[in-house]
């Protein structure tokens, strides 16, 4: 990977981190301000998707880009399936939907980047995998 590509991805990761930090801080404040917070119900199977990001990262490191893209696509599909069951009128579920949709957009972009740039887009994909673990813990444990 060139220094330019690495620097570009690092900065993209910084911007994405800020984006998710903004949603997280909004959720923390919104949850604390009112009495209408109900933890979003997450199906048990969603925890299995936590492994898809690291699996794809491992495949990228081994140079198996198509397999990594397949794992990434499975992650996006599972997120879309989860989104269809969330109710926007319930604030906890609405935050869950926003963060999952934002992550799905990042994951889809990550899969596309793997297809276009191969292992050179690996740094961003590693971030996407770690970010999904963060989102799951945010709703599965903290919320």
């Amino acid at each position: 990977m060139t220094n330019t590509a690495r620097a570009g991805q690092t900065l993209l990761i910084a911007a994405s981190s800020m984006f998710f930090a903004a949603f997280t801080s909004a959720m923390v404040v919104r949850r604390g301000l009112s009495g209408d917070w109900i933890a979003p119900p997450l199906p048990a199977w969603i925890w299995a998707t936590m492994l898809l990001g690291p699996l794809a990262s491992w495949l990228v490191q081994r140079g198996q880009i198509k397999s990594a893209m397949a794992a990434g696509a499975m992650l996006v599909a599972s997120q879309l399936a989860l989104l269809s069951n969330l109710r926007m009128a319930v604030i906890g579920e609405a935050f869950c939907a926003v963060l999952i949709a934002a992550h799905a957009a990042h994951a889809a972009a990550g899969v596309a980047a793997l297809g276009r740039f191969g292992a050179r887009a690996g740094l961003f994909w590693h971030f996407v995998g770690a970010l999904w673990i963060y989102v799951l813990f945010l709703f599965g444990v903290w919320a």
Partner: peptide, 14 residues
């Protein structure tokens, strides 16, 4: 810009 516009984007989506 890198840190500020990401937050405005999040606020706009909400």
């Amino acid at each position: 810009s890198l840190f500020a516009f990401a937050v405005l984007l999040a606020g706009g989506i909400l």
